[in-house]
């Protein structure tokens, strides 16, 4: 299990990296944390001609709270950095729930937010979190820069909207609103394995404990992270009763078509999606109550 030959170029700046990507297109791959790419190289499932190493580019390492109540995570933000940043975890508690599910400490020391999102594994946790949080992706090429919603960023199995010459620069997301609660839950065979199903829920209540906003996104149950906020919209204007939440969960199950894998039948995944949606919504509600 040794990689096929490739040319390795260490980018000296984002501009350099982008010019290389413009030159090599799909034959070139950005090397960030490498925690998904290098296994693929070792199995020879990926055989890029050129690896453009973007590690160490300070322009991609931002990890901070912006003015206007938004968080910014540079593409090279490592999971571990996020895990250790108490302010950030408080600003977006979903991360605190989700990060421990991502592989193991050694992987989290290397793996990056940008690499994870660009890899777009539908069973991965962060894509669902970004969808639930209405994150915005800032992508750049030599030709220019654009921003898109997380929900539009993921377009298919291991496929994003990134063009061959583009790079994900950073992700911004809103700080969790007051009177809000969030919860991420997942079922995997072992801790750290890819999710058989996972669910991120965020609920915001008004002073009368009625839902003013509900976000619900799932991982592992489709070709992309699944935005199930539509199903959850039934809660808006309501107090989240068990009955209502169960109805949302049933609706979520109806709206997905999981493919199944060696660990889970499609029906089991659908079942899990319902169970986890209900549990995550309940827990999110409880957390609003606690926060209030």
């Amino acid at each position: 299990m040794k990689p096929a030959p490739f040319k390795y170029i260490k980018a000296s700046s984002v501009a350099h990296a982008l010019s290389l990507k413009a030159e090599y297109g799909d034959d070139g791959r950005f090397l960030a944390g490498g925690q998904s790419l290098i296994p693929a190289l070792n199995f020879r499932l990926a055989r890029p001609a050129v690896l453009i190493d973007i590690n160490g580019l300070a322009e991609l390492e931002a990890c901070d709270c912006l003015e206007g109540g938004r968080l910014r995570l540079g593409a090279l933000t490592r999971y571990r950095t996020l895990e250790r940043n108490g302010d950030l975890l408080r600003a977006c508690p979903l991360f605190a729930d989700a990060l421990p599910h991502i592989a193991h400490p050694q992987i989290r020391n290397r793996g990056t937010v940008g690499g994870n999102l660009s890899h777009a594994d539908p069973a991965s946790e962060l894509p669902a979190v970004t969808v639930a949080m209405r994150a915005r992706m800032r992508v750049k090429s030599e030709a220019g820069e654009r921003e898109l919603d997380a929900a539009d960023f993921f377009v298919g199995l291991l496929t994003t909207d990134l063009r061959p010459d583009e790079m994900l620069i950073d992700v911004t997301l809103p700080v969790q609103k007051p009177r809000s609660g969030g919860c991420f839950l997942e079922v995997a065979r072992r801790r750290g394995d890819f999710a058989l199903a996972g669910c991120a829920a965020v609920i915001t209540l008004d002073d009368g404990s009625r839902c003013t906003d509900v976000r619900l996104a799932l991982c592992g149950v489709g070709e992309t992270p699944v935005d199930a906020s539509g199903a959850a919209a039934a809660l808006i204007g309501e107090k989240g009763s068990d009955k209502l939440i169960d109805a949302v969960a049933t609706d979520v199950q109806r709206g997905i078509a999981p493919a199944g894998n060696v660990h889970a039948s499609p029906d089991y995944q659908r079942h899990l999606a319902g169970v986890l949606s209900a549990r995550a919504l309940r827990k999110a509600l409880q957390r609003v109550a606690h926060a209030a």
């Binding site: 065979r189 660990h263 889970a264 039948s265 089991y268 079942h271």
Partner: peptide, 8 residues
Amino acid sequence: LSPSRLFE
């Protein structure tokens, strides 16, 4: 056995 198999 597995969770999925038990479910089935």
